[in-house]
């Protein structure tokens, strides 16, 4: 693998007594959540439990109504520095070629176009896509697009990497491959990673901490699990399966609660009458 220097260390995040609402709905309440430097933390939970809100707060793209988010012990007042974002879709600008996409943040930093494109081709080489440098995203598969996104992420040398279900639109095989790429980027860069996924298997393959989130009554952190499985992880191992079952039970319970919530609410209202 090409050796382009990466960030020296990951960032530390701390969520203190935060509360964020949208209208009358409280999206998330969390206190004392610390994301250690260089860790790979997964946010796991049903839709509507405030995972994306938490990620946006970590990115400094949104701000809590109450409490604070600290980045290396500094309260975030704007977009978090040295942070890269990866979404499920729309990560690459479709009007730019692969190399232009990767060169974009370098150009933002003031690098000359020729030099930035040269660097971009090196980063593309790291994800084995240098021969597709001149292709537009629409000419590439979903997996290739996400690899280019990773190449651009490496180019920005982030200390914090925030991923919102980045592989959920990919097929199983490509998803596994992307997980390996992500782990490689993580081990090379030592960046802190905070990632959302709905996939239990993915969470267990990647995380060294899983933050289980619940949506009732408001979005909140239900439990934090430290995953102390050896790497590379073996999904066939007993320990892996035991944690998987535990997480499965949690999500099933959450689903049942969410399905019965409207019935419980209407019963409450009837009792109040």
């Amino acid at each position: 693998m090409n050796t382009i220097p990466s960030s020296s260390s990951g960032a530390r995040l701390e969520f203190s007594n935060i509360r964020k609402s949208f209208g009358d709905t409280v999206s998330i309440e969390a206190d004392g959540l610390i994301i250690e430097p260089g860790s790979l933390t997964i946010l796991l939970g049903r839709s509507g439990c405030g995972k994306t809100t938490l990620l946006n707060l970590a990115a400094g793209l949104d701000f809590p109504d109450q409490g604070s988010v600290s980045y290396d012990n500094q309260v975030l007042q704007g977009p978090a520095p040295s942070t890269a974002l990866i979404f499920q879709t729309h990560n690459l600008f479709p009007w730019m070629t692969a190399e232009e996409n990767v060169a974009f943040p370098l150009r933002n930093q003031g690098m000359a176009r020729v030099e930035a494109l040269e660097h971009a081709r090196q980063y593309l080489k790291q994800v084995e896509l240098e021969s597709f440098a001149g292709h537009k995203p629409s000419q590439l598969s979903g997996g290739m697009r996400q690899r280019i996104t990773l190449a651009r992420t490496i180019a920005t040398k982030p200390r914090l990497l925030l991923l919102d279900e980045p592989f959920s639109a990919l097929d199983m095989q490509t998803r596994r491959m992307m997980q390996r790429y992500l782990l490689r980027v993580w081990s090379d860069s030592a960046a802190t990673i905070l990632m959302i996924t709905h996939d239990l298997h993915e969470a267990l393959m990647l995380a060294d901490r899983i933050v289980l989130m619940a949506s009732s009554p408001n979005g909140h952190i239900a439990e934090i699990l430290d995953i102390e499985l050896d790497r590379p992880r073996n999904p066939e191992s007993q320990a892996f399966r035991a944690i998987q079952q535990q997480l499965d039970r949690f999500l099933e319970h959450e689903t049942l609660l969410a399905e019965h919530a409207p019935i419980l609410e209407s019963t409450d209202q009837t009792n109040n009458l």
Binding site: T83, P105, Q109, R152, T156
Partner: peptide, 19 residues
């Protein structure tokens, strides 16, 4: 997502409009 990513990649206001 485009705007969030561009913002996150340190894009200036003028470059945000142009690119």
């Amino acid at each position: 997502e485009y705007l969030k990513i561009a913002h996150n990649l340190g894009t200036s206001r003028i470059r945000m409009w142009w690119y």
